[in-house]
Design a binder for these strands. Structure first.
Lengths: 185, 185
DNA sequence: GATTACATGTAAGTTGTTACATGATTAA
DNA sequence: TTAATCATGTAACAACTTACATGTAATC
């Protein structure tokens, strides 16, 4: 059995919030699902076409401010059904790959200092990401108070924040452990 | 620029611990780097061949207990150099995709009960995974006390455990939040 | 006698990224 | 006028999974 295409559901879900163009979807997802889902252009546009052929979405051609055509897609009844069916199925595990942890896993080959600097770099990234999610949170709370979507959006932001905070703590503890270890290097 | 192949480094790293066959590598990685890195057969065997052609690893043909040939690979000097070079470079971010969080993100389309059941399912998975890492931890501590590798292996196990524990806590809190919310569904 | 573990590999297909092409509009 | 943003799309390629083919040896 081939792998199930998950991109479709991310897109169908986005369109369930409001009709959007491909460009809108890419930007919206990259902002608001940043911590747990990403899509690239090369995926979104062809998938939109496929979904339309399948009758799960329909496009209403609309021109934006300029003359360049802009295709705004909306869910069809069938698309809505398909989305809701998928949402109800238990989630499959999606494996992550962390290059950072892989490097640390082989940390024996590095000096203490080099390991610590990997950890410090990650620490900085985490700080930036926490700031980012603080902003996203404020943005969701102010702009979308009316939408009941925002309730679940904030829950996923909490998830990201909890993850980052626990990783930050682990970074600190790990640096201590490494500094106190008796390895020569 | 094409994406950099990370599989090579996972394999080179594995061979830096001890010479192994493709089969060994697959099993070892799937056990010990489970939480942050996975490789499939269809990746490992062709990559081993490529790495050999590049002179980064060499195989010593050896037969195992039976007659079936078994290729044990070891790092060459060049391969060691390549690995160490990569280990010292700052880690690139690897994006994760969580189907579970994506479903919850669109949770507005589900009933409270359905959302809770997604969370409960995840809770069970986390329990199992925590148990798994407890076992791995004991295994690393007993079998590999002599190897100084184990120091860093345990650090990555800590990372996985911290992540899981923070997610578990978030699961509980989220269930409370959903139960207390005033959504109709 | 059947299943599981050992062991290597290939084929087919899907999924995904990156870089590019194209072109309009708006703001510095 | 230069750059950024809006906007859609394609081509090339890399990465990845799944299923299968093949065969031995040990165990239940």
């Amino acid at each position: 059995m081939p792998r199930e295409n998950k991109t479709r559901y991310a897109i169908l879900g986005a369109l369930s919030v409001k009709p959007m163009s491909g460009y809108d979807i890419i930007n919206w997802l990259s902002k608001v699902t940043k911590s747990f889902w990403s899509e690239s252009e090369g995926q979104v546009y062809p998938t939109l076409e496929r979904l339309q052929k399948l009758g799960l979405i329909k496009s209403e051609k609309a021109s934006s401010s300029g003359k360049r055509l802009r295709k705004v897609y909306a869910l069809t009844k069938q698309g809505t059904k398909e989305l809701d069916l998928w949402l109800r199925k238990p989630a499959q595990k999606t494996l992550l790959r962390s290059e950072f942890i892989l490097k640390l896993f082989y940390g024996k080959r590095l000096t203490k200092k080099e390991c610590i600097s990997h950890l410090e770099l990650r620490e900085k990234e985490i700080h930036d990401e926490l700031l980012y999610f603080k902003n996203i949170e404020d943005h969701i709370e102010s702009d979308h108070k009316k939408l009941s979507d925002s309730f679940y959006w904030l829950i996923t932001v909490n998830h990201a924040k909890a993850h980052l905070q626990s990783e930050l703590k682990w970074c600190w503890e790990t640096q201590k452990i490494i500094n106190n270890s008796k390895n020569k290097k």
